[in-house]
Amino acid sequence: MAMVWREMKALRKEKTIMFAILIQLFIASFSSVILLGIMVYYDPGSISQNSQVGLDVGVIGNHNSMLIKYLVDRNYRVRIYDDASRAEASFKAGRLDAIVILPDSDKGVVNMKLVLPDMDAQATLALMLLKDPMERYENYLRDQEGVTLRYHDVQGKPFTTYEFLYTLIIPILMFFPAFIAGSMVIDSISEEVENKTLDTLLSAPVSINYITGAKIIASVVVGAFQCILWIVLLGFNGFSIQNAGWILLLSIMITGIIAILALLVALVFRDRERSQFIYSLVILVLFALTYFISPSPFALVARLATADPYVGATQLIIYFVMLAVLVAATPFVTRKLMSN
């Protein structure tokens, strides 16, 4: 226990945890920005709902087209022009975001023209905002032709944010502390090797396994603390995490597994630079391999967090077994590595 405290104190002094938390905050923030970027492309509807983006559309041609109805349904301001030059003048004066030129009837193949401003940003936005009314108009034309689409009346909620948050961000936040924990174990071991303090500790009446055990327990405790912090913070932001207990347990077990692996890597290579490099590669390969476990740790966190009735304690057993095997084997391996 005293050893664990010694490690925890060393960590606190280094202020490393603050940095770890800062990094995670960064990841979370940048993800939300990237998410915004994705939404601009995929979900312009949600943006127009949020920020009241209006659209001014000029219409030339068929005044009775169903497209006009669909545009009005979306609360876009529609102005009808008989005279092309007047429409052009309004467009040039910046009063119109787009001009629609419609053929005389809503029958058969409709070749319409869409005039957009010659500016990348505005044109993209206008086109994305017009996509939905144009699709409805297309369905109407299909219907006239006797072609009906199934399932087109399904509503549902835009799922991009939900999927992104639960299947990517939350799992990353739950496993990043594990990655940091391993990295910390390596630093702490290689520092003791380089400063020769390990020899001093070894000459004291404690076994090497107490020393390494203390380092691992300290890193797991710190990792768990970060996970709890994230679960609480996400809760404050209105993202509920179901099965938080199971998720925490999973995260702790994976932190333990990674910390032990990091310890072994550090004991084999001894110097920090090579250990960190090999450790990063090992983590990369392992995480890629878990993709073939069903459910993978990432998917498992996502499904636990959204209260999927098909996952629970049973799916955690495999990680428990892995951790147990490693815990049982590490003392022997460590002693062997130290005696070399």
Binding site: A84, S85, A87, E88, F91, K92, A93, G94, I99, G108, V109, V110, N111, M112, K113, L114, V115, L116, P117, D118, M119, Q122, A123, L127, M134, Y137, E138, L141, R142, Q144, E145, G146, V147
Partner: peptide, 27 residues
Amino acid sequence: QAFPLRVEINYLKAPATDIGSASPLTL
């Protein structure tokens, strides 16, 4: 029948741009 609506995209010189425009078209 499957795709009865086709939309041709045209760009028109936008308001407030005094930089060289790629589309010399008029309406």
